[in-house]
Design a binder for these strands. Structure first.
Lengths: 229, 229
DNA sequence: CACCGGGCTTGATTCACGTCAAGTAACATG
DNA sequence: CATGTTACTTGACGTGAATCAAGCCCGGTG
């Protein structure tokens, strides 16, 4: 555990309410690893052994099936994922893989379970974290069931853009292949979706995409999709 | 609050770890309502005002879009839903509607937020509850992205069936329209999906469906879809 | 009994997206 | 400089599911 990691750990929502001495005590059981891109942190079907907290880099959660796999969600610094598998002491539902090189804090499952049960402030942090994730997944399901591929891409781009009216340039979180997985479509379809959005002022080179007029895009997806919200 | 409700409340995972005197104190802020089928408990986009705990009946969470809406998940007795919106003090992401007549406990949002922050055992219960829900949604997304409609129906039926080998009769949680929404397809497609499964030993009258040989169905969905789990 | 309305099924057609297959561009490697 | 290699785009074609449109079955009502 390097001292350089501490501020990153502190910043996680999981620890926001934990008092300083408690935090120090908790972390004695943990260790930090630097891992390369592509490293697998946990595998679908295996028993939960560690809670992982992302300190740097990004992690993707994948669901595997016969031939292909789908990205379910991804996480960045400050996120603690697979909390559910750990607290319920259940097998991992998904496979986690590093999308970049990154530093990951490992927290032995049994120790974490005991801490959550014993420390109210940690449990509260977990509630906040899980609440955010639940909303993310709920929104994802809504999108998958109700929106077309093009609409989902629009919504995705808008979510990436800061709430502005002028032209914005957003950076895609990874290659197009990854984005396609997140949207639940193939890379080819993603390409077509980008082409379909070009007339609406979405010009995309490589990993950078600029939206000429977010309002227009917002109106497009809004009119076709969301009523409330 | 009727005394008849207490055992139901106790049974909820949310309160599993809460000591008896604490529980009594918490419940002073709550009240219980009997509501008819179709009653709307909360509406997408509105600010969270109550946490709802289902005591009897079933509740569906729907996402609304321009013309249609999709069922995201449903809940039964013991479930406390929209915890995330309440603890984050954020607008509801989804609309909740009663699928049957049912008794619902209402817990004012501010009071619940304060209790979760103050009472570790309640926060721990919330962590368990949310963990379960996260896994449900994660599985749902995996299914939506990787499985065909027929495969999703198979998996859904198998999840309803007790872990048996012999012929099983399962009861659908509501009309076919509802099931179709849950699976992310139209009622017509559901009908066709049932027809497609008939050769595999799935005979469906009305709301009861009997599976002649669960193992065969399991093999069907397994071979085509899930590798690990 | 005739009548009607809602839920389920079935058929014909349409459409979105996946699949297969080239083709292009950027970059590293021999 | 030729050559992979990888990432992205584009086109042609097939398919799964939505849509449109009847029919069917069943319970309620006059």
């Amino acid at each position: 555990m390097r001292t350089i990691d501490l501020p990153l750990i502190r910043r996680s929502r999981l620890f926001a309410q934990v008092a300083e001495p408690d935090l120090a005590a908790m972390l004695t059981a943990c260790f930090v690893q630097t891992l390369p891109e592509g490293a697998v942190l946990c595998r679908q079907g295996e028993k939960a052994e560690f809670l992982h907290v992302v300190l740097s880099g990004r992690v993707g959660l994948f669901g595997a099936a016969a031939r292909d796999e789908a990205l379910v969600e991804f996480f960045g610094p400050g996120d603690a994922f697979i909390v559910p598998a750990v607290v319920l002491d259940a097998p991992y539902l998904l496979t986690a893989r590093l999308l970049d090189e990154g530093r990951i804090m490992m927290w032995p499952a049994a120790a974490f379970r005991a801490q959550v049960r014993a420390t109210g402030s940690l449990a509260y942090g977990a509630v906040l974290l899980l609440s955010g994730y639940w909303r993310t997944l709920g929104g994802l399901i809504k999108d998958l069931k109700l929106l077309s591929a093009i609409e989902r891409l629009s919504a995705f781009l808008l979510a990436l853009a800061p709430r502005e009216t002028g032209p914005v340039t957003v950076t895609l979180p990874g290659g197009r292949r990854l984005v396609a997985g997140r949207l639940g479509i193939t890379p080819q379809s993603l390409s077509r979706a980008f082409a379909a959005l070009r007339p609406l002022g979405v010009s995309g080179g490589g990993r950078e995409v600029t939206i000429v007029e977010p309002a227009r895009l917002r109106e497009f997806v809004g009119s076709r999709a969301l009523k409330g919200t």
